[in-house]
Design a protein around this nucleic acid. Structure first.
Lengths: 140, 140
DNA sequence: GTTATATTTTAGAACCATTCTAATCTTATT
DNA sequence: AATAAGATTAGAATGGTTCTAAAATATAAC
């Protein structure tokens, strides 16, 4: 048996891709499975690329970048850059914040309701607020 | 007259450098003057480098980077990276936050008291919070 | 199913911000 | 002045990301 025709994870991922208007290619399916199979995660392009290698998924680094950006554009991922020199892609796209561990570079989600922002200024010049990010840097 | 021996801005800057234990070299003095002469600002390495060129200050790009990092290490500047691919150096080192204009890449300070954070979670695993950054992204 | 059309993948080159190297020059100290 | 420590420099190197243009694949139309 070379292929599983369907698996629960596979179908879900396939449907998610179709639903967002992205062609479910072999590469996108495989990468999406890696990203969305288990709970939420923060992945860099390089990390995902290596993970794919480990799983014997043949995919180029360019395709990993393309897929991550396509997924982000369709709202399946959210891009985060904290230190210059590498962004992370977060599978949790709902409103939330982050701990950033300065020593290790590790990111950890903070549920939105754990940070209460009482007052927020209006955007200057009638601009619209598109997102509010709270990053708590910890030296851990 | 080739050099002004002293000027108010010069003396202040020279004192600031000495006070922080940095040798006040020609290059550091010139760059510090550009940075601190007027009110607070956000400068990238490239921007500062070009500004130096415009002012006929001969300084290499490596020195601009060195100076910016040295100033940051001594607490004269604060480094901010929002999108991967370039950091800014903020002359305002006191606690405050930022508007980020997604279209232009422009940064604008938000005084700390304009954002009230009512509840903040403890850092996990007994780590210490080193900084809290609030970035309000606006599409302007 | 086949064909036509649009989209995707790919290897490798190119790019850009940043850091490194190791030689030269400056500053501060004696 | 001589010395030692620190700073500057041009250019090479690095690392993450994007580009290019050709080959492969997915969908739509027949």
């Amino acid at each position: 048996m070379r292929h599983k025709k369907t698996s629960v994870g596979n179908v879900t991922v396939l449907e998610r891709l179709r639903a967002s208007g992205l062609r479910p290619t072999r590469q996108r399916l495989a990468l999406a499975k890696l990203l969305f199979a288990r709970g939420h995660r923060h992945a860099s392009a390089e990390q995902l690329f290596n993970e794919a290698k480990t799983h014997r998924i043949e995919v180029s680094l360019a395709t990993v970048y393309n897929a991550l950006h396509d997924f982000t554009a369709k709202g399946l991922l959210r891009e985060i850059s904290i230190d210059s020199g590498g962004s992370y892609f977060d599978t949790n796209t709902s409103y939330h914040h982050h701990f950033y561990f300065e020593r290790s570079g590790h990111l950890e989600d903070i549920a939105a309701d754990r940070i209460a922002i009482a007052a927020l200024p209006d955007a200057p010049g009638g601009a619209e607020i598109s997102r509010v990010d709270v990053i708590i840097r910890v030296n851990g």
